[in-house]
């Protein structure tokens, strides 16, 4: 099980060499080349990310691990187009996305990326249904189709019966399942999860991991930041960061 045979392709050439054109499984969905992110304060320049090379193929489940401050969350934010890099290249599904305008970035996030946050980040004033529906409304999708999609997503996470509840009426585990439903409702290219079990007790944490496993089996591409080694082992690949660098890239299966 714990094979360590494939090092991730560390260069674009590698990625190109490995892939052939076409939308078949195995194509590099995410391609990072020399990605660097620098924060500057008065007298210190902090390299949150240093020269990151990473390829993620369709259908992969990548766990991003590392101690606090190692840059995991920053990496996830850049992958999710929530943050930009200082240097380097980022191709998402073959398209360069680093120099997009804010409006185009919003469009890409809306169409192609599903987010799951540690603190769920449901909007407290909206019902469960409306929360899941939100990204779809930004897409200008007709109401009937939205309804169908939202219901399907809520069923997938076992929360259909709570559609009319407010987030405050749900337990943490339930809120996170709603957040997962919201992330998958728009059929994104990739799911990005930032410590999805971080605010949950172990039982609810396991349930969320189970949910992600099912999504992965259904073909979803997942990048997940986690503290928990046990959860990292469920993923098909573990990328370890330390002080903003990839120090280990371990692939299973």
């Amino acid at each position: 099980m714990m094979t360590n045979d494939t090092k991730a392709a560390a260069s674009p050439e590698g990625a190109v060499a490995q892939e052939d054109a076409g939308a078949e499984p195995g194509k590099a969905l995410i391609h990072l080349d020399g990605l660097t992110k620098v924060f500057e304060t008065e007298d210190v320049e902090t390299h949150a990310l240093s020269n990151i090379h990473l390829n993620v193929r369709k259908g992969e489940w990548v766990a991003i691990v590392g101690p606090s401050g190692s840059g995991k969350s920053t990496l996830l934010a850049v992958l999710g187009l929530l943050d930009t890099a200082t240097r380097g290249a980022y191709l998402l599904d073959g398209r360069s996305v680093l120099d997009l305008s804010a409006t185009d970035r919003a469009l890409v996030r809306n169409r192609h990326i599903g987010f799951i946050f540690q603190s769920f980040n449901l909007i407290g004033d909206l019902t469960v249904f409306e929360n899941v529906e939100l990204p779809l409304t930004y897409r200008g999708m007709p109401a009937a189709e939205r309804k169908q999609r939202v219901e399907r997503a809520l069923e997938k996470v076992g929360m259909a019966h709570r559609a009319r509840h407010m987030p405050g009426q749900l337990s943490g585990g339930q809120q996170q399942r709603v957040a997962v439903a919201r992330a998958v409702a728009g059929d994104p290219l990739i799911l990005l999860a930032d410590e999805p079990t971080g605010n949950l007790d172990s039982k609810n944490g396991e349930a969320v991991m189970q949910l992600l496993t099912e999504l992965h089996k259904g073909g979803a591409t997942i990048c997940m930041v986690t503290h928990d080694p046990a959860h990292a082992r469920v993923a098909t690949r573990t990328v370890s960061l330390f002080d903003g660098r990839i120090v280990q890239d371990e692939q299973r299966r």
């Binding site: 469009l107 890409v108 169409r111 939100l134 930004y138 897409r139």
Partner: peptide
């Protein structure tokens, strides 16, 4: 701010 952040993460445009 956080809610705006969430909405923008979910793809809300500035106009929205």
């Amino acid at each position: 701010t956080r809610e705006m952040g969430i909405r923008m993460a979910l793809g809300a445009s500035r106009t929205r």
